[in-house]
Amino acid sequence: MNSAARCAAAVMAAGLLPFVAPSAPAGAVPVAPGAGAPALERMRREVAAATGSPDVPCWRDITIRSAANGRYVSAEIGWDGPFYGALRARATSVGPWERFIVCRDTGSGVTRIRAQANNDFVSAELDYAGARYGLLRAQSETVGGWERYYSNREPGGNFSFYARDTRRWVSAEVTFRGRAYGTLRARATSVGAEETFSW
């Protein structure tokens, strides 16, 4: 059993949100194979190569909303330095920074996320310490270990997602204050409200 399948099995065995068949999320646009931009097709092929799946669905215009505060996740591309592209659950409405492309293999849950605002992949940053450890940022042009996730539901419902290289669930840090409020970090070992989102 490969690592993706082991993660999927562990999620189901732990009684977390079950894997379900694909559904068309409201407002999201399913992108048929061959119909997307070259970057989207590369993203789809990379997930297919990682999973061995011949058919990987992708969606455009996906929003991500935190169950902990009801806010939409934004890719903060107006910031500079180490916070450029930071993902934060802070928006009360949807604009360009709150739209993402998601490709997800149904069988394994292997997921890639790309911000439409800057067309960069979402990374879990492991080279920071303290409160910035595992910070999710839309800042990568390529996919490596930091850009690999597993999610336990297709777009269209509540889900949680897991960063492969931190082996941790992604949290919306709603207890942080100021600029750090609502930042997404791959740091949790269990799933609660801060680790629950809706596509």
Score class of each variant (00 low, 15 high):
residue 163 A to V: 04
residue 9 A to G: 08
residue 119 N to I: 03
residue 190 S to V: 08
residue 176 F to G: 04
residue 35 A to R: 14
residue 101 I to T: 13
residue 92 T to C: 04
residue 112 R to P: 00
residue 162 Y to T: 01
residue 123 S to A: 14
residue 75 A to H: 01
residue 194 E to V: 10
residue 183 T to K: 10
residue 182 G to A: 12
residue 102 V to P: 01
residue 4 A to T: 05
residue 26 A to F: 06
residue 80 D to Q: 14
residue 156 G to C: 07
residue 47 V to H: 03
residue 145 G to R: 03
residue 76 E to M: 08
residue 122 V to N: 03
residue 159 F to A: 10
residue 163 A to I: 00
residue 147 E to M: 10
residue 14 A to W: 05
residue 48 A to D: 02
residue 50 A to T: 01
residue 63 T to N: 04
residue 87 L to I: 11
residue 68 A to W: 11
residue 160 S to Q: 14
residue 23 S to N: 11
residue 162 Y to E: 05
residue 83 F to K: 11
residue 175 T to N: 14
residue 46 E to N: 11
residue 155 P to H: 07
residue 67 A to R: 07
residue 177 R to E: 10
residue 144 G to C: 11
residue 4 A to D: 15
residue 152 N to Y: 07
residue 151 S to V: 00
residue 158 N to T: 12
residue 120 D to H: 12
residue 99 R to N: 05
residue 168 R to L: 09
residue 125 E to A: 06
residue 151 S to C: 05
residue 132 R to V: 09
residue 166 T to W: 06
residue 142 T to K: 13
residue 157 G to W: 06
residue 174 V to Q: 09
residue 138 A to R: 01
residue 126 L to Y: 01
residue 83 F to P: 00
residue 163 A to H: 03
residue 100 F to I: 09
residue 190 S to A: 12
residue 68 A to K: 03
residue 131 A to H: 12
residue 55 D to W: 09
residue 64 I to P: 03
residue 142 T to D: 15
residue 14 A to Q: 09
residue 39 A to E: 11
residue 11 V to Y: 03
